[in-house]
Write a protein that binds this DNA or RNA. Structure first.
Lengths: 234, 234
DNA sequence: GCATATTTGTCCGTATGTATA
DNA sequence: CTATACATACGGACAAATATG
């Protein structure tokens, strides 16, 4: 009995109402939310029998959903032992940032002056910055974190590459795992201003400067996150 | 009856002998090989009933394997219609190269002079170049293609990032899909020399030059591949 | 170290729904 | 529009591996 009781409430009703897709994908989407929103902590086991009973789906269908999420890095499959919510080591977290840096810096560098010429392009980014600032003003640090994620997702989206978007979504899902249990304000507060600064550079068409700034940004963010995790441990 | 007969031969024996892993993963690995080696062409349907009979696994297990490969982009899942070997459109192929360029150029750029100082680091790349040249000398163009893939995989591996390695493996699997049915010599021959040239730049520690050259290389490679596909179509 | 209980891994049969001829 | 074929999903069963006492 490793899973908590609270997170099971209302799951069955929620999975039945999700949009048209295969049952396995609906279950996967539901579990993905629960994991990334911290409802069930890293390391906890997901019992096949218990979950299939609560979700009202067969074990086979549930296992298909497990495969999907395992492939995304959210769950880990241990043979004959079951599936667990993934726990990111410091090395793995650094690796996530390694890939973020490669993708995001590349996207920004190749933007060139195009971003300066069409202001509409950056509208989603401006909205994310505004949302983050508003959330910070009212102390909603979880909202700041979400806005920050959206900012980076929209930044990558400027490249118009479905595969880069998908990779970013996976990285963000793993990042949310790493955020669990840490002080949300300390985690997210510094990046309201940094996002705004970065956006200014991009909007000015200074893509090389923006890429360099983003590299510093991400390196600092990783160091910051590692430090926060360190104090949360014995 | 959309699948050919030949590719089914000996599958059951092969899947039984694969190393210790879950049956679903063994089946996935086997199908992955069949797809990337062109044994079954893009667009062909994989019948659950037929495959489960031939592989001697249950449909549930087979479906788990399908989920894994679908997530890798090798198979596409059409609801209530079944799974098919993915067909890459020109746009998707360009997107694959978009991600390759982001990853590989980033890796090369960040190598710096380190590669020049430790020659052992580049040993796998040298071996791949030699293998490719030898294969070209005897007209083994499929072997040239394989060596080329290994070269790029080893290049990315210099970064020491498991996630970049995994992403590269997925991209290469999709690339192999695009290679199907094209003239292997025309497809792979030009890159024996380009790999050697690129390696020289890297070995000299000129990482910025190498990154720029690699960018040209990949852009040219994409254009080349698109042109070859165009002539293979009506 | 051993026997047992629990959980996962796998298979089968079957029922239902969907797309296509 | 009906019919058919096939994917989707379920529940029960047993085997295999692991964890527990």
């Amino acid at each position: 009995m490793t899973t908590t009781r609270s997170f099971l409430d209302g799951l069955a009703a929620e999975v039945a109402v999700l949009p048209r897709a295969s049952t396995a994908e609906r279950v996967a989407e539901l579990l993905r939310r629960r994991v990334t929103e911290g409802e069930l902590p890293p390391g906890s086991q997901l019992s096949e029998e218990q979950l299939s009973a609560v979700l009202q789906v067969s074990r086979n269908t549930l296992r298909e959903a497990f495969r999907l999420l395992g492939h995304e890095g959210l769950l880990v499959h241990r043979l004959h032992r079951g599936v667990f919510v993934a726990e990111l080591s410091d090395d793995e977290l650094a690796d996530v940032y390694r890939v973020r840096r490669a993708i995001e810096c590349d996207v920004v560098r190749r933007l060139g002056p195009a971003a300066a010429e069409d202001p509409e392009l950056l509208a989603p980014l401006r909205a994310d910055v505004a949302t983050g600032a508003a959330a910070a003003a009212r102390g909603d640090w979880s909202g700041v974190g979400t806005a920050n994620m959206h900012f980076h997702a929209h930044l990558v989206a400027l490249a118009g590459s479905p595969r880069l978007d998908a990779a970013t979504a996976r990285l963000h899902a793993e990042l949310r795992l790493a955020f669990q249990g840490a002080d949300a304000e300390a985690m997210h507060a510094p990046y309201v201003q940094r996002n705004a600064d970065l956006l200014d550079l991009v909007a000015a068409g200074r893509s090389a400067d923006a890429a360099a700034a983003l590299e510093d940004y991400l390196d600092a963010s990783l160091a910051h996150l590692l430090a926060l995790r360190a104090v949360g441990r014995p």
